[in-house]
Design a protein around this nucleic acid. Structure first.
Lengths: 236, 236, 236, 236
DNA sequence: TATGAATGAGTTTTCATTCAT
DNA sequence: AATGAATGAAAACTCATTCAT
C-alpha cells in the first residue's frame, strides 16, 4: 500500500462479504462429510480456509512485507496461483485476514453474559479474553495490528470502528454501572476505559516479546489490577 | 564489473579552482572557518547522523522489511553506498538504530530526581515519559520494537535486559517505598510493576493507531490511573 | 516490496483464446502434438539446456567473476529469474556446469576400444581427444578449469578425483602395457603419465591463446610426440 | 575490456615506458640509503613497487575481475586513491603488471650460458625454469595469463610476441643444434618446439591445481622427458 | 602527493504476479 | 479451478573511480 502507485479496484466490500460467507469453521466442518466426498464448493472453501490459516501464521511470524506467498502456499498445501483465485493480491489478502480474524473476538466479547456484580462480569470477561487471546495465537494478531497498523490505515480504521470503539463503549457502560452501584469509587475511570484493558494489552505484548525471559501470569496480574479498581478482593 | 563506463566528472565544473581553495593544512584549518565548513571527521559524523535520522523515520513509517535503503539514502541526502560506510548491512543498521535510540530514554528514566512523595516522583516521571516519548517520535520506536521484536530476538533481548528489566526493577522499588510509607495500599502491586506503566504503553499504541479517530489525553489518563493506585487526588 | 506496480499483461494479446486451447489433460496431451509443441516438463528441460549452453559460452568467454547472469539469461532467451529456478546461485551454477561438462569427456575416454598395439590405442585416443576437445568448445572448459580452479577448490578437487586421477591411471596402465610388450623403451615413463598428455594440454592452451598468431597442428604434434616415446614411425 | 564502452586513451606505450623506468629492483634499492631519509622520487617508487607487488598477489589469487583495488591498496599499505597516481585504471594496471612481470623471465631465459652439450644446456635451462617459475609465484603468472588471456587479447599478443615466439625460436635453434650434433634423433621435433616445454607448462598447472592432492616432482619428470628426446641418460 | 570518504552504476538475488497447461 | 514455471521489476549490496582536503 505504502508505495503502490496504481491499485486495481479491490472492492473491499465485496471481498469482505466473500470472506464472511466462505469462512468455514475448520475443525467443525470435517465430520459433516466423509473426507473424500467433498464437492467443488466445499473443496474450494477448504482450500480457502487453509490459505487463510497459513497466511495468518506467516503474517504473524514475519509481518506483512517479509511474508512470502510462496511460503503461504506451501504451508497451505496449495499452488501459488491458487491464492490468486481467492484473493486479489497480497495486500488485500492481508487486510481481509485481519478483518476476518477479529470476527470471533467480537463474538466472544459481546456475548459476555450479564449476570452478577460488575466485578464478576469484568473478571469473567477478562478471564475469557486472557485465555482466548493473550495465551493464544490471536494475541499475535493484536500485535500484528499494532505492527502494521500505521502502514495499513484501512485496517486501523476498521479495527477502531468495529472493535475498539465498540469494546470501549461496552466497558464504559460497565464502569458506569459499577460507579452507580458503588462498586467502583473512581468516577473518572469512565473517562478512560482504556485503563481497564491496559493490562490485557500489556500482557499480549509481553507474551510475544518477553515471555521467554520472564513469564507473566496475566490472570493474576489482571486480578491485582481489578483490586486497584474495586478495592481489595476477598477470595482468589 | 569489467563493464563500467567512465565516470563523468561530477558537479565541480571548474576543476582548476580546486588548487586555489584547497591545500589548507588539515588540523589548522578548523579555526579558520566558523560553522558551515566542517572538517572531514565532522562531516562524516554529520552524514552518519543524517543516515540515522533518515533511517529512523523510514523504519518507523514502514517497518524493517518494507524500508528501502534507497529511500533512506535519498532522505539523508547521501548516496546509497555511503550507508555501507557506516553500517554493515540493513539488518545490523536496524539493530544498532534501535539500540542507540533508547539510550536517551534510559538517561531520562534514571535521571528521575528523588524528591517528594512516591506519587509525586511517579507523576513527575510519567509526565516526562509522556512528553518525551508518547507525544514524540520516540513512542514510535516502542511500537517498532513491538512490531519487529519477534523477528529480531536480539533486539527483544537487548531491550528486555537494558530497559524493561531495569525499568521494572526501579518501579518495583518505588512501589515498595510507597507501600512502606502507606501511600500505596495494594501490596500486591509490587508483584506486577507492569501495571503501573501499562497506561503509558497503551497511550503509545493509541497515539500511533487511533489518535486521529479519538485523541487521548495521556497525562490525564495517567493521573486517573494513579488515583486508582494512590487513592483520589485532591487537585487537578 | 510493497511498491510493485501492477504488471502489465504480457505478450499474449488475446487472453480469451486461452480457454479454447487450454484444458488438455496433462498426460494424454503429449501424443497429440508432434515435436514443436513440447509439454511442460520438456519445455523446462529445454530452457534449462539453453541456460546451461548460454552460461557455458559466457563463462568461457569471460570467466566466472566477469560473467553477468543478465547476459546468460539474455543469451538463453529466458528471464533472469528463470535461472534461479534451475540453480541456487551463480556459484553453484558454475560448479555444476563444470561438473556436467566433463561427463561426455569421461565417456569418450573410458570408451577407448582396446584393439591393436599400445601406440595405436593411444593414437586413437589422442585423435579423439584432439578432435573432440582441443578443436572444440570443450577445450575452453579445460582452460576454464585452469583459470578458475584455484578460486573453486571444489572444482579442482572434483576434477582431480573424477578425471585426472582416473585418466592418469588408465594411461599408466597403457604405458606399462607398452613397456611389457617392448613398444616403449623408457620404463620411467610410467612414473609420469602426465608426460604423455602434456602435448594435448599445451595444444588446448595454445588454441585459445595463440592460434590466431600461429596455428598449431595438434594431431601432427602429437604424432611427433609419440615418435619420441615409441620410436620413429614409418608412415605419415 | 570486454564490455567497457569508451576507454579513455591509455597510451600503452607510455605506460610501458613508465613501468620500465619506474620499476626499481625491490631488494637492491633498500641499502642505498638509510631507510627514513628517502626522497620524494624514491618514496614514490617504493609505493609503486608495493602496489605492483600487492596487485600481483591479488590478481594471482583471484583473477582480474574478482580482485578489489581496495584489497590491493590495503595489502600495499597505501590509500586507494594512490593507485590512481600510478595507474590509469584497473585494467591498464593489470596489463602493465603482466607485462613487467615477465621481464625478469626473459632475462633468465636469454641469459642461458651456452657451454656443454645440447642436453646439458636444456637441462640447465629447465632446472632454472622449474626452480624460478614452476616452484614460485611466477608460475601463477603463467596460469594467470592462461586464465585471462582470452579477455585481454593485448596481453596474449604481447606475451606471444615477446616471450613465446622468442622462446620457441631459441628452443628450435637448440633442437636443430642437437639434431645436427646427433644428440637428438627425432628431426621432426624442431617443427614442434612446444613439445620440449610442454612438461614445464603441465608442471605449472599441476602445481596450482593438484599439488595438494598429489605432489609432482617437476625436475624428475623433466629428466624423464629429456630421456625420451635424447635417449636414456646414464647418471642422475 | 597522498588520502580515504563519497559516489552511483552495475550486479546478484528475490518474489508478487501472470498464464499456458 | 488448480497448478507452478516463468517473468521482470525492485531491492540489497559492491566496488571502480573521483575529489576535497
Amino acid at each position: 500500500m505504502t508505495k503502490r502507485t496504481k491499485r486495481s479496484p479491490r472492492s473491499s466490500s465485496v471481498t469482505t462479504t466473500r470472506a464472511a460467507t466462505a469462512r468455514v469453521p475448520k475443525v467443525a466442518s470435517a465430520p459433516l462429510r466423509p473426507k473424500p466426498a467433498a464437492n467443488r464448493a466445499e473443496k474450494s472453501a477448504e482450500r480457502r480456509a487453509a490459505i487463510v490459516e497459513a497466511a495468518m501464521e506467516e503474517f504473524i511470524a514475519r509481518g506483512f512485507a517479509a511474508t512470502r506467498l510462496d511460503d503461504v502456499a506451501k504451508r497451505a498445501g496449495v499452488a501459488k496461483g491458487t491464492i490468486y483465485l481467492h484473493f486479489t493480491d497480497k495486500e488485500s489478502m492481508f487486510e481481509e485476514l485481519i478483518r476476518t480474524a477479529i470476527v470471533p473476538l467480537i463474538g466472544n466479547i459481546t456475548m459476555a453474559p450479564p449476570g452478577g456484580s460488575v466485578r464478576e462480569t469484568i473478571e469473567r470477561f477478562a478471564a475469557t479474553f486472557i485465555q482466548e487471546v493473550v495465551s493464544t495465537r490471536r494475541g499475535d494478531i493484536i500485535r500484528l495490528i499494532v505492527a502494521e497498523g500505521p502502514r495499513f490505515p484501512a485496517i486501523a480504521d476498521f479495527y477502531f470502528r468495529e472493535v475498539v470503539s465498540r469494546g470501549l463503549a461496552g466497558i464504559t457502560a460497565l464502569i458506569q454501572l459499577g460507579v452507580a452501584s458503588g462498586e467502583i469509587r473512581q468516577k473518572e475511570l469512565a473517562r478512560f476505559p482504556q485503563l481497564l484493558v491496559a493490562p490485557a494489552i500489556v500482557a499480549v505484548i509481553w507474551q510475544s516479546l518477553f515471555a521467554r525471559h520472564a513469564p507473566l501470569d496475566a490472570i493474576e496480574m489482571f486480578k491485582v489490577h481489578l483490586d486497584l479498581i474495586f478495592g481489595e478482593r476477598r477470595t482468589t
